[in-house]
Simulated scan of single mutants.
Amino acid sequence: MSAHPTPGQTSEHNDVVFLLEEQHQTIRLLLAKVLDETGTERRESFRDLMQRLIVHETTEEEIVHPYARHTIVNGEQLVADRLLEEESLKQALLHLELLDPDSPEFVDAFEQLRQEVLAHDDAEEAREFAPLKERGDPAELQALAQAVRAAAALAPMHPRPGLTSAKDNILAGPATAAVYDRARDAIRKIVDEL
């Protein structure tokens, strides 16, 4: 019996695909939770969702997508398609961040974001993750999982302290953008150390 798994036989819990799909599940639960709440609870759930999406998408952009580009068939195009979707999600988050979470405009915009996130996750799982699982080197998929975990642990999970209102965020720059920047910096540091 081989000491190392062959492609398609990675230890599931150490595999980056399993980890990312697990993150997708958490995001799906948070997407439902936001609209089930109101007031402060909705604001906090949205902030939690926003931060998790930011860290998740940034780790994919910096760690997983580069590997997928050269590992899966048509990787360049598949990653380009996901990056377009991710850019749309970022813009939607920036817009939502400035709205009153209890306003009808927020609810409508959030529902659109929810549909986009669900479609993006489904496309990613079918077109990028499944081929990665099939074609990726097990040791490399495990190393990517370690990098994603390390980056998520180091990436800032909170917007700028003291900026709780839309007005403050406009004056200081959107918190979403700041979190993306800090997450990307932390993740790039991890990638450089690999």
Results as ranks from 00 to 15, higher is better:
51 Q>K: 03
189 K>E: 15
138 P>A: 04
100 D>P: 04
151 A>V: 07
25 Q>E: 14
62 E>S: 08
103 S>F: 04
47 R>I: 11
8 G>V: 10
86 E>I: 09
165 S>M: 09
24 H>Q: 15
82 R>L: 13
48 D>Q: 13
159 P>L: 09
102 D>R: 08
118 L>A: 14
66 P>I: 13
72 I>Y: 00
42 R>P: 08
88 S>R: 15
117 V>R: 00
56 H>S: 02
164 T>A: 12
132 L>A: 02
104 P>N: 10
83 L>P: 05
44 E>L: 12
13 H>T: 12
117 V>H: 01
76 E>M: 07
90 K>L: 13
176 T>D: 07
137 D>L: 07
164 T>P: 01
106 F>R: 02
181 D>V: 10
85 E>Y: 11
53 L>V: 07
172 A>G: 03
137 D>K: 07
41 E>F: 09
164 T>N: 15
168 D>G: 09
139 A>P: 01
55 V>G: 02
139 A>F: 04
182 R>M: 13
51 Q>F: 01
108 D>V: 08
188 R>C: 05
110 F>P: 00
159 P>S: 13
43 R>D: 11
123 A>N: 12
106 F>M: 08
71 T>W: 13
58 T>I: 07
121 D>R: 00
163 L>N: 03
7 P>Y: 05
85 E>K: 13
153 A>W: 03
80 A>Q: 12
114 R>H: 09
145 A>W: 01
46 F>M: 10
104 P>T: 11
9 Q>T: 06
51 Q>D: 11
182 R>A: 13
29 L>N: 12
141 L>Y: 06
56 H>I: 01
28 R>P: 00
121 D>I: 06
129 F>D: 07
35 L>N: 13
121 D>Y: 00
65 H>E: 06
156 P>N: 14
41 E>K: 14
2 S>R: 05
157 M>L: 04
91 Q>F: 07
138 P>W: 04
2 S>P: 13
